[in-house]
């Protein structure tokens, strides 16, 4: 067991180390000139390298600089401070969670109606599928402006964008899942003279869960992406997207990278939460999904 885990982890660790090494080399290559200016002309190679890896606004920060920026942003600032990464991540997480909840409710409701109403299946489902090819994020600025016009500001417009983005994977996964029981199982339910409601509650719904969670994991990621992008056009003061934008305006590379890493961590957290929910459900249903 442990040896198997080690054998699986070893290649990942080696590749990770290689990547970090390449990152350091790239940081050195990109920042050497600025490092030279900082260290002076007569500096030793070691001093030069150290200078290149510790610039304040590097073209490419070295990994330890990014780690330091993330750490101090997460834990080194008071929570209410505008420089606290935890605060910004919290704002984005709230938006993403609200959007995701909306997407979950509407996505499942739409999937249930698509499965049960043939007219909707034939007329709406093709549009749901086709909408995947449309760059939905392009409408984000408009949604924010329009909702701002009718007095809706703050978290709701952003949550709507995050929800709109994460809505489709849930719907498509749920439609597939509700249809996943095969003919024999439906026939069996009918021989029990089960009502339509029973078939739904005891066959379709339990069968759809595995599909739902596959969709939920994609949707959780998309909700975070949507929340971040929605913060760009609002000129939002808070949130990881706002941090990205502000860092981009003022050339604060470390701030951009720290926000980026925080966004990645937030995504991991979201997918991890979905995974936990799935495990809980599996445990409650006796080890199967």
């Amino acid at each position: 067991m442990i040896r198997g885990a080690a054998r699986r982890a070893a290649p990942i660790v080696v590749v990770l180390l290689g990547l970090v090494g390449m990152w350091y080399a790239a940081a050195l290559a990109l920042d050497l000139r600025a490092g030279q200016a900082l260290a002076g002309s007569g500096a030793s190679p070691q001093a030069l390298i150290a200078a290149a890896w510790s610039l304040e606004r590097p073209l490419l920060p070295a990994p330890h600089q990014v780690a330091q920026a993330v750490w101090s942003g997460l834990f080194g600032e008071p929570l209410g401070s505008a420089r606290s990464l935890l605060y910004h991540a919290g704002v984005t997480a709230l938006t993403a969670a609200l959007g995701f909840a909306l997407a979950l409710v509407f996505g499942i409701a739409l999937a249930v109606s698509i499965v049960h109403v043939r007219t909707l299946d034939r007329s709406l489902m093709p549009w749901v599928v086709a909408s995947q090819t449309v760059p939905v994020l392009a409408i984000a600025p408009m949604v924010v402006v329009v909702l701002g016009n009718i007095g809706l500001t703050g978290v709701l417009p952003k949550a709507l964008i995050a929800g709109w983005l994460s809505f489709f994977p849930i719907t498509t996964a749920m439609v597939t899942g509700l249809r996943s029981p095969d003919r024999m199982q439906f026939d069996l339910m009918r021989t029990y003279s089960a009502s339509g409601r029973d078939i739904f509650a005891k066959l379709r719904w339990p069968a759809s869960m595995a599909f739902l969670f596959a969709g939920v994991k994609v949707a959780a990621t998309l909700a975070v992406v949507g929340a971040i992008v929605a913060e760009l056009p609002t000129g939002a003061q808070a949130g990881l997207g706002a941090r990205l934008l502000a860092g981009s305006y003022y050339g604060q590379t470390l701030q951009i990278w720290a926000a980026l890493i925080a966004a990645a961590l937030l995504t991991l957290l979201a997918v991890g939460a979905a995974d936990c929910a799935q495990r809980v459900l599996v445990a409650r249903r006796g080890g199967r999904l």
Partner: peptide, 28 residues
């Protein structure tokens, strides 16, 4: 060996909000 090392990482990175690198690319 490389495949076992790279694939999990690539899957992970692919699931990240990669659009966030946009400001860095604009800078570069």
């Amino acid at each position: 060996f490389l495949r076992r090392g790279v694939l999990p990482l690539a899957g992970l990175l692919g699931a990240m909000p990669i659009v966030g690198i946009a400001p860095i690319m604009v800078m570069w």
